[in-house]
Design a binder for these strands. Structure first.
Length: 291
DNA sequence: CACTTGACCTGTCCGC
DNA sequence: TGCGGACAGGTCAAGT
């Protein structure tokens, strides 16, 4: 669900809504997936919101940082000043803003609030000293290269065509599994992996080291393209994803193969999209175009 | 090392 | 209408 485009959508809105504001207090209602001392973030100003793969980092003025991973069903919701349309709240916010799935509430200055809801409770929120983010967080430390989705604001470790090619050449694993390996490439999940492979006309089961130069470059471009398209449509709300302003993304209406089992392929218009399970994950592809 | 399966959780949907 | 079971995907840990 939340993959790079969804998390980037969250980041862009949080940047607009909460940067420059102070955290007054934090209410931890369900603490299992919360780590850290609230005292280190109370009364402190938010200076930036960054994204690393599918994780978010909220930087604070006292050199602490809040790292967040929403996993499958985590939702970050903002209410307060500057909200575009305060009346709008998607039905996908199950239980509402302060319901039984609301586990953490950040109270901000000027009566702003940032809610963390999570139906399945897979997500986590952890407080770190900024300089120790990549030391203390296994997830952040091991994260792979970042696909470049904003040329104006490139990551420090960009996924270049050369890096991409190198990653693929070193493994026989199915290409789709490699695309989704966060320790190799950061941010790609099931929806965008399926769509990128279809766009590049490559079979998801093909061993990564068997892709030739042309296929590799084609896939590289397809990956960047679907991720950018996902950001453009503010992510996919097929399941639980909503944006901080409480609205749904639209990418679910523009998926290429994901969720299109039994429908005609949009390339050849003849074959029907097939669904298989690859490493336990729903995998969609065209058996004719993606050999 | 590669790869698979199960665990973490709960809501939704489908078939009986 | 209710009930059981499959399914949804992100990551980690354990097992083969």
């Amino acid at each position: 669900m939340p993959e790079l485009p969804e998390v980037e959508t969250i980041r862009l809105q949080l940047e607009k809504y909460i940067v420059g504001h102070k955290i007054k207090d934090v209410d931890v209602r369900y603490g299992k997936n919360f780590e850290g001392d609230v005292k280190n973030v109370a009364g402190v100003k938010i200076i930036a919101v960054r994204r690393f793969g599918k994780a978010l980092v909220i930087d604070l003025s006292n050199n602490y940082a809040i790292a967040i991973h929403v996993k499958m069903t985590g939702q970050l919701l903002y209410r307060g000043p500057n909200l575009r349309n305060p009346a709008v709240l998607s039905k996908k916010v199950i239980g509402g803003l302060e319901g039984k799935h609301t586990h953490i509430i950040f109270y901000l200055d000027k009566n702003g609030k940032l809610y963390y809801n999570d139906i399945r409770k897979f997500g986590w929120i952890k407080i770190f000293i900024s300089s120790e983010l990549k030391i203390k967080s296994d997830f952040l430390r091991k994260l792979g290269f970042e696909p470049v989705v904003d040329e104006n604001n490139p990551p420090k470790n960009p996924l270049t065509p050369g890096k991409f090619s190198e990653i693929l050449s070193h493994t026989k694993r199915a290409i789709k599994i490699v695309l989704m390996d966060q320790q190799k490439i950061a941010g790609i999940g099931n929806i965008y992996a399926n769509d990128a492979l279809w766009l590049a006309r490559i079979n998801p089961k093909k061993p990564a080291d068997k892709l030739n130069k042309t296929e590799t470059l084609k896939l590289y471009k397809a990956v960047i393209k679907v991720l950018k398209k996902g950001i453009k449509y503010k992510g996919a709300s097929e399941n639980a994803f909503v944006t901080p302003d409480g609205e749904e993304g639209k990418y679910q209406n523009y998926t290429l193969v994901y969720g299109h089992e039994g429908e005609p392929c949009k390339h050849c218009h003849k074959a029907k999209i097939v669904k298989i399970f690859l490493a336990g994950r729903g995998t969609y592809f065209c058996p004719v175009c993606q050999r």
